[in-house]
């Protein structure tokens, strides 16, 4: 009986904690938006964050995109040649990259490469009481530290996802056309014939933008919210990567079911 009560109490505490955190993250988001104007007035801050989360993620994004595209080229060729329609290789590579793999894989890589770094930076600032020091000097830490990192991520993410997709299509082309010998003209013309700009490309960009918002918000929030100890920072980084991955995959399902519903 006591064990049961204890269990119920635990479930209740977890639920309240979850709802509380959800409300806190929503309020935090509103505050970040409110002070974004202030941080945009000092644009170099945001440009610096675009460098750290965008430019420094370029290598991993480009290399992963190339390899994902090459794997798609090999696997797609293997499947399509059974149906005698290897000319459709371009369609398969382009659609799977633009609609799903580009935004999702780029988002996951971005969360682990840039999101974790942002969490660590803000978490360490909090641990070493730099955030409080700023507050004391009447510098708003949200406007000075958090908002630039948030917008840096939001701006970088769609560009990185587009680069990922473009590199992937190039990788698929390398394997399909250069290595295996699918007809070059058929590869591009079939791709162009069935990839629609608004329907496929634009929806992919919208997806990557939403993922960028989600990952950046989680990263800055976990950093800002962490326990100010060494252990707390490491936990916050882990939480950033894990919850970013879960949120990206869940959001991807929701967005896909709205965008590509039975058409």
């Amino acid at each position: 009986m006591n064990a049961l009560l204890e269990l119920l109490r635990k479930i209740g505490a977890m639920t309240i904690d979850g709802v509380w955190r959800l409300g806190f993250i929503a309020r935090f988001f509103c505050v970040v938006l409110r002070y974004s104007g202030q941080s945009f007035r000092r644009l170099p801050l945001t440009i610096r964050e675009i460098y750290f989360s965008g430019v420094l993620s370029l290598l991993i994004i480009l290399v992963s995109g190339l390899f994902v595209g090459m794997v798609l080229g090999l696997q797609g060729y293997d499947i399509l040649q059974r149906f005698g329609s290897i000319d459709a290789l371009g369609i398969m590579v382009a659609l799977s990259l633009l609609r799903e793999l580009g935004p999702v894989v780029a988002g996951l890589l971005f969360a682990s490469r840039a999101g974790s770094a942002v969490t660590a930076e803000i978490g360490l600032m909090k641990t070493t009481e730099q955030l409080q020091a700023m507050d004391m000097m009447a510098v708003n830490p949200i406007a000075r530290v958090v908002a630039p990192r948030f917008w840096g991520g939001v701006i970088s993410m769609p560009l990185l996802a587009a680069l990922f997709s473009a590199m992937g299509i190039l990788g698929g082309w390398l394997i399909g056309v250069v290595a295996i010998g699918v007809d070059d003209g058929a590869f591009w013309s079939q791709m162009r014939a069935s990839v629609d700009f608004r329907y496929d490309v634009l929806n992919g960009i919208i997806k990557s933008f939403v993922f960028g918002m989600a990952v950046s918000l989680i990263a800055v929030f976990e950093g800002y919210d962490c326990q100010p100890t060494a252990e707390g920072v490491s936990r916050a980084i882990t939480r950033t990567v894990v919850s970013s991955a879960l949120v990206i995959l869940a959001l991807d399902f929701v967005l896909t079911s709205f965008m590509f519903r039975g058409l």
Partner: peptide, 24 residues
């Protein structure tokens, strides 16, 4: 570097829009 990154990113977007997608 940021300028290069943004330019390359937009070049990729243009590539996707012009070379890969059609505007039907």
């Amino acid at each position: 570097w940021v300028g290069v990154f943004v330019a390359v990113g937009f070049a990729a977007l243009v590539f996707l829009a012009v070379k890969v997608g059609n505007h039907s």
